[in-house]
Design a protein around this nucleic acid. Sequence first.
DNA 1: AGAGGGTATCGAATCGATTCGATCGAACCG
DNA 2: CGGTTCGATCGAATCGATTCGATACCCTCT
Lengths: 355, 355
Amino acid sequence: MDDTATPARARPTLASVAALAGVSPSTASLAFSGSGPVSAATRERVLAAAAELDYAGPDPRAQSLRRGRSGIIGVVIEDRLRDAFRDPMNVAMLDGLADETGSLGAGLLLITENGEGAASIRNAPVDAVVLIGCSTSLAAQVAIFRQRGIALVAIEAEPMDDVLAIDLDNRQGSRTLARHLSDLGHHRVALVTLPLDAGRSRGPLTETAIGASTGYTALERIRGVREVFPGAPGMMAAASSIDEGLAAGLAVLSEPGSRPTAVIAQSDLLAVGVIRAAEQLGLRVPQDLSIVGFDGVKLDGIAPYDLTTMVQPAVEKGRAAGRGVIALLNGEHPLPVSFVSRFHPGTTTAPPPAE
Amino acid sequence: MDDTATPARARPTLASVAALAGVSPSTASLAFSGSGPVSAATRERVLAAAAELDYAGPDPRAQSLRRGRSGIIGVVIEDRLRDAFRDPMNVAMLDGLADETGSLGAGLLLITENGEGAASIRNAPVDAVVLIGCSTSLAAQVAIFRQRGIALVAIEAEPMDDVLAIDLDNRQGSRTLARHLSDLGHHRVALVTLPLDAGRSRGPLTETAIGASTGYTALERIRGVREVFPGAPGMMAAASSIDEGLAAGLAVLSEPGSRPTAVIAQSDLLAVGVIRAAEQLGLRVPQDLSIVGFDGVKLDGIAPYDLTTMVQPAVEKGRAAGRGVIALLNGEHPLPVSFVSRFHPGTTTAPPPAE
DNA sequence: AGAGGGTATCGAATCGATTCGATCGAACCG
DNA sequence: CGGTTCGATCGAATCGATTCGATACCCTCT
């Protein structure tokens, strides 16, 4: 109608809606938010005015300033989304987290910790942050968020002050698997580990690498195994994927000298890769080589094996993190949660072959 | 020191920093933002004051209100993150998007379109939105975002006004695959399609389902095939996964009457599932059954086959979307982009077996 | 009819920063 | 030596909504 008068598309504000409806901005606000006493007639007048002006509702930026809340939960992810989401456990956790925090408002903000990402750690308008599968400079990040007064939840990380811990019995679970192999009679056992640090390079598992590692989950799982097989050698994979498992598996199984009779892979995807490696080398699983994984990924269709593994409640971990976030935002003091994994006896382990 | 006077942890503000430094808030702001002329001495005084108060930098909520920008890009995802991230194409696109928009500031906000998600569509403080792999009520969502004055980019969707389209030659690519099979001599070809709508139920591919479908990509790929095989029957999968491909594959191959000599799966994951189904039924690929996929997922280690497929530049699609977002936010008028997929002749197709 | 109670509405302060225009000095030039 | 210009700093308005306390009004009870 009077488009000619409008210089450009100036979005209507609550104030302009109020003016058109002939009420004060405060009343208009009440009419929109639903809280507070507003007569039905007034509310309708306001809504009608809003419709006429094509008003889309209160500006979330202004709301979040005034309320001190944005409704956004940050999720700190390692550098490449590709790597993080290749691991079904991360996706499952994210799913549980999204599920539980869905009511909060806006959604999940993916924050990557790469180079310029430092900016997003400082600038992201988040109410709380969940640290997930993180490694690099975790302490530095935590310090920044703490300074900003942002609630923190960490899934599987070293315990830290003011950070709600959601943990998994990685060490005990790994020990269970190692015991299982030990009970079957295995002595020569090799590891295929998750990445030990941000470098993410494939290579032999050395004490130096372990000492310098920042990968909490990988370390705990190594420790659990070494309680049973103290000096077990191994390979570090560069990611939790079938490809990496294949490569690391070939390396572990092709080593000169005595070949291991069992391989403990730190994730099911890695384990599938190791199975492929065994197949390529003409080894039968489990007759010639026993293989165990970790996580309990559903592998139907990927591998015609029933993998012996520890099943972990990944979605539940995400849910617990979500509940923790909500509790923290409500000013409560939630207690840390620790989940346990469950042994799944598959068909990929057997007594070692006779010498 | 004077902690006793502090009632609670009142976060310091730029104003308090300015007061301590003995300058005006405007000067303090200039000192922080780096823009504008500030003497080195003053800047240092301000930074020292900030350090003393443990000031974490300007509040992003206030910044985004004042600037009218939050630095956040929204990504609208179908209901369950689990389903969306199971498809490597979505992850790849997200990766490219994150890569390209990393400089913008805060990050990617995942917006799920489920029930209460409607709230997040209205409340999310985003500068722009990328619609990706979407289906349900797309028009309604677009209307809301448009009303809110938010820049829109859609990857593989029906063209819409004011929405920058990033497209893929799904129809032509599918036609290429169909031609390839036709040239080999196939006549009885079956489809295994991506989900056709938000319902995501598995079932026979009916004209009714096609008519009611909101799945642009799936529809385009069906159209491409039908240009070569007009009446090709098929099954709809409930997701793009190996499991679903297996189930749909079994259904397609077990149908009474004449079994197809080739299956066109609408994604590589589905194709792997169909291969598994063929194996279960004792069919050799490609001697007894030809199978093609779509996407060009790296399948090393998952399947010992070199799948015949169309390779699409998924990461590049995400990148293009990111560049589009940036251009739109700069007030430019970027042109729609259309990517082409490339035929990859694998080893899963052959002439049909003699009758 | 006046006091009391409850409801609908309004005013004004506030959230925390950014930014435009004004001001104040000092250096520079003729 | 006075006028000009440039650079640093400051004041005040502004972004768009929320919210507390105050006000005006109407109804009821005695």
